[in-house]
Simulated scan of single mutants.
Amino acid sequence: MIWGRLAPPATMGGMTASPWFASPDEAASRLHAAGYLPDPASATTSYLAGALEKPLLVEGPAGVGKTELAKAVARACGADLVRLQCYEGLDEARALYEWNYRKQLLRIQAAGGSETWEQAHDDIFAEEFLLARPLLTAIRRDEPTVLLIDEIDKADVEVEGLLLEVLSDFQVTIPELGTVTATRRPFVVLTSNATRELSEAVKRRCLYLHLDYPDVEREREIVTAQVPELDRHIASQLVETVARVRELELKKAPSIAESVDWARTLVALEIGDLDERAIAETLGVILKHRSDHERAVKELRLRS
């Protein structure tokens, strides 16, 4: 599903659109080469996000590769990654910019009262006193940049208002300096664990991609790509066990990254067969809550 009207990749806002990928197939191959195994929907939306210069909202449970997709785009395209980690209490000063008040005060003190207020104002609200945060940093860069706005659903609703100008026009307005408009639009990825509903205003400005836990075959492909020294038989046992564990009522289901960690654990311990005892002894790699561990031992009938 894709939100928003799809416009042709032409000249936008005085800039010539420059697709990050030439086609969905190229996106798939380059992401694969960067260590990320995209499904067709991921490859297609990644291509469109670059070609249409629209932000990409990636939603799904924790640990399915949402953040890793943004990192893979940066690796595949030789771009720098600028990350805004969202959290409750995030404000404009941490997301956009703030003034270096200590440096401004020193500048006023150094003037010794010899300047008028207008002169002092122009001096202290200058570029050298500005502290750029992730959103402004990404907007001002001339080099290829991936802007990752991670876990937007953890931030307060008010933060979404700060994003609208960036997501719509790729610009930031600083009252004292004016409007900063991107000369080279970043590739923007927003991730959400869907712990709350995002505003329609944000959704309307984005393309949309939903990622879920992969099926057994695909997860085996991911695990063996990340841990090539893992025996294929054990890899099959591992992903089948993880699939069974995810079906349980847990506080936190194992992520793909934890499946990969488990694979590396089995290699490190030189375990040749993932039997009940081996599972019970290494279950802490994929389950991080005591109640989840106890439920898995009980439901899978493991010998703890």
Results as ranks from 00 to 15, higher is better:
83 R>D: 13
222 I>S: 10
62 A>R: 12
83 R>E: 12
133 R>E: 14
226 Q>Y: 02
78 G>S: 05
170 F>A: 14
196 R>W: 06
4 G>L: 06
188 V>R: 08
220 R>I: 02
139 I>P: 09
99 W>I: 02
2 I>A: 07
197 E>Q: 15
244 R>T: 02
202 V>F: 10
236 S>N: 13
190 L>R: 06
54 K>H: 03
128 E>D: 15
31 L>D: 07
212 D>A: 11
128 E>H: 11
150 D>Q: 05
39 D>F: 03
243 A>P: 00
285 V>M: 11
156 D>Q: 01
102 R>H: 12
231 D>G: 05
265 T>Y: 03
5 R>G: 02
50 G>Y: 10
160 E>K: 01
48 L>C: 03
291 S>D: 15
160 E>N: 07
65 G>D: 12
196 R>P: 11
43 A>F: 12
247 E>T: 02
225 A>P: 07
129 F>I: 07
125 F>Q: 03
126 A>P: 11
101 Y>G: 00
86 C>Y: 04
186 P>D: 04
71 K>H: 14
218 R>E: 13
203 K>H: 13
47 Y>W: 15
239 V>A: 09
96 L>E: 10
220 R>E: 15
202 V>E: 09
272 G>W: 02
196 R>E: 06
127 E>K: 11
153 D>A: 12
130 L>P: 10
229 E>F: 00
215 D>H: 12
241 T>P: 00
139 I>C: 08
291 S>Q: 13
118 E>P: 04
65 G>W: 11
137 T>I: 02
50 G>P: 13
19 P>E: 07
217 E>Q: 10
55 P>S: 10
55 P>K: 07
122 D>N: 15
27 A>F: 00
228 P>I: 06
189 V>D: 10
90 L>H: 14
288 K>W: 08
181 T>S: 13
191 T>K: 12
6 L>N: 01
238 L>G: 04
273 D>S: 15
252 K>R: 15
15 M>G: 00
220 R>H: 09
132 A>W: 12
188 V>T: 15
27 A>V: 01
191 T>P: 10
145 T>S: 08
235 A>S: 14
262 W>F: 15
15 M>P: 00
223 V>N: 10
267 V>D: 05
77 C>V: 11
58 V>D: 08
259 S>F: 03
85 Q>I: 04
116 T>N: 10
269 L>C: 10
191 T>R: 13
107 R>H: 09
145 T>K: 08
29 S>C: 00
79 A>R: 00
192 S>K: 01
281 E>T: 04
144 P>Y: 04
281 E>M: 06
